[in-house]
Design a protein around this nucleic acid. Sequence first.
DNA 1: AGTATTGTTCGTAAATTTACGAACTGAAAT
DNA 2: ATTTCAGTTCGTAAATTTACGAACAATACT
Lengths: 98, 98
Amino acid sequence: MEKKSIYSDRQIKLARFAKALSNPVRIYILELLSKQSCCYSGDLTDVLPIAKSTLSQHLKELKDAGLIQGEIEAPKIKYCINKENWEFARIQFKELFN
Amino acid sequence: MEKKSIYSDRQIKLARFAKALSNPVRIYILELLSKQSCCYSGDLTDVLPIAKSTLSQHLKELKDAGLIQGEIEAPKIKYCINKENWEFARIQFKELFN
DNA sequence: AGTATTGTTCGTAAATTTACGAACTGAAAT
DNA sequence: ATTTCAGTTCGTAAATTTACGAACAATACT
């Protein structure tokens, strides 16, 4: 039996997107990706003052939230905004703020 | 000596706002407040499936992030959106998503 | 003065987040 | 074949988040 939450699916998704945005490292990455089309995580390693394993965690967080996607260009990985979900998130935040 | 972060003040503030939005309880509260002008926390206690101490923590989180403000109407407290910061947050999110 | 109402604070517990370095994996280059 | 490069996974530690109930504080009501 499924216990239904008082929170709508939409509210839960919005909170999930917000969580992905709740860290300056991830804001930095997303702003970079939304300004230029894509980047390699090596670019990020060079500029961000965190260990590569930590960066990997942050990228995974953004990927799991659906905001970015990675494409293998061996031996590197090219990261881009996931446009569909990015647009969806944009609308969710827009509606929250009216 | 102040160690300067590679993250801008704006990026840190945006992450801070996102953190405040990163929980379904707080999304619920903010949507309620942005739809109707204000509410009493008793209204929230009635509808939210959490302990009053937990609700108090969430309201404090929203207050500390600057998104809401409380006004004493003894013995209750009337909560409203903090319009100035709400507008500021709106702009920050809007700019993030272009 | 005493009681009820409203909300905060305290102490605590479990889960999650953020961070690191070391070890590992897979593909490319030598 | 082995070395190099790019990135992930693992183990771990510290801090933060979320949650609860009990106790407390402040005000209103009787």
